[in-house]
């Protein structure tokens, strides 16, 4: 991260150094967005919650006990916000059932793919989003999700198969 350790950046952010947080924001924004998109399946809500999570993470950085755990901490904030959002919006059942209403999805240049991603179960969607959005390999996704690499490979494999099935239902590859 620009030659500075996470610990150094966290320390600088704690001191209110403006130049310090731009770098970690850019580093973690794709991952936090991927987590939110993976959990919510809805890009515009994901944007809002990712922003809230990142701002919360940096403004409350003083509460972080172990500076080295910033990445895990901000992911946790994002996950909690998403869970809270789902609870608040009573969307849990709908999302699990893959029934996010059409008007809650964003317009996309890839409407069939977007719809198929939305309909994936969260346990498949989340690793898939992290894999593609954050450019993590399966080992990285495993660390982020606190899973074994084998479990991530299995989930990604199932995600691909399910995605293929959903896209196939909608007339094949776009």
């Amino acid at each position: 991260m620009d030659g500075q350790s996470e610990e150094q950046l966290v320390a600088a952010c704690r001191g209110g150094d403006k130049s310090a947080y731009a770098s970690p924001v850019r580093r973690y924004a794709p991952q936090v967005f991927a987590i939110c998109l993976g959990m919510l399946g809805n890009a515009h809500d994901a944007e809002d919650l990712a922003q809230e999570a990142l701002v919360k993470g940096f403004t409350r950085i003083g509460e972080l006990r172990d500076s080295e755990r910033f990445a895990a901490w901000i992911r946790k904030i994002a996950r909690h916000l998403c869970l809270d959002f789902i609870r608040r919006q009573k969307l849990g059942r709908q999302i699990l059932a893959g029934q996010v209403e059409q008007n809650q999805t964003r317009p996309s240049d890839y409407p069939d793919l977007h719809q198929a991603i939305t309909r994936l179960p969260e346990q498949y969607r989340l690793p898939l989003m992290l894999y593609y959005f954050d450019g993590q390999d399966t080992a990285g996704v495993a660390r982020t999700l606190n899973l074994t690499q084998a479990a991530v490979c299995a989930r990604l494999s199932r995600a691909r198969k399910e995605l293929r099935r959903l896209l196939g239902q909608r007339g094949g590859v776009q």
Binding site: Y110, L113, H114, Y132, R160, V173, Q174
Partner: peptide
Amino acid sequence: DDRLLADY
């Protein structure tokens, strides 16, 4: 699909 996801 992989290419499509990357493009997405």
